[in-house]
Design a protein around this nucleic acid. Structure first.
Length: 179
DNA sequence: CTATGGATTCGCT
DNA sequence: GCGAATCCATAGA
């Protein structure tokens, strides 16, 4: 298998995560979104990835088994979350950038402190769902507080360059549901 | 040890 | 549209 094929796997997984539901249950409060916007990052092969320069304490989770949560702080203020993809050591991940609320809207409104723009950005998504650095490393397929559930692929998907990065902008690895 | 800058958001203009 | 807010992992001395 060529490295291009392996990269294709990460892109395929990222694309197919659209429509899946991300559910959190903290203190008995349930909140859930259907994913509409994701970005693929391909570990050591991807200059835009946190894992590009090798294993560090922060990105350790990315080098672990797939379907775990990698959470990091951006700009000192916001939390952003990724789903680890691929075999252990691959360090590929999918950044969850946005979704639409499907359950627990009131909880999200309370956490966000506003009624609109609840989950239309990576930092907002984490805040609305109550995800923080405490959840770094969480198993998304188990019975923990953060779970990923299979959903239905949206009818149309757009591929665009990734947002907010300075490297590898020629790679259209951002996937957005439309229609 | 210190310096740097980011996978962002919000409020104001 | 523009800039401030704000933390800490990383890199370099």
């Amino acid at each position: 298998m060529t490295s291009a094929d392996i990269t294709g796997d990460v892109l395929d997984v990222a694309r197919s995560l659209l429509g899946w539901r991300l559910r959190t249950i903290f203190h008995g409060e349930r909140a859930e979104v259907a994913l509409t916007e994701v970005e693929a990052y391909d570990g050591g092969n991807d200059p835009a990835s946190h894992a590009y320069r090798g294993r560090t304490p922060r990105n350790l989770v990315m080098f672990g088994p797939p379907w775990h949560l990698y959470v990091y702080r951006a700009y000192g203020i916001h939390w952003c979350m990724n789903v680890v993809i691929g075999e252990e050591g691959r360090a590929a991940a999918v950044l969850l950038r946005g979704g639409v609320p499907t359950m627990g809207r009131e909880v999200m409104v309370a956490r966000r402190g506003r009624k609109d723009h609840l989950t239309d950005g990576p930092g907002k998504l984490c805040q609305a769902l109550g995800v923080t650095g405490e959840d770094n490393g969480a198993n998304l397929l188990g019975r923990g507080s953060v779970r990923l559930l299979e959903g239905e692929l949206p009818p149309k998907i757009k591929a665009t360059p990734r947002i907010g990065i300075s490297n590898a902008q020629d790679r259209k690895w951002r996937f957005v549901a439309s229609g």
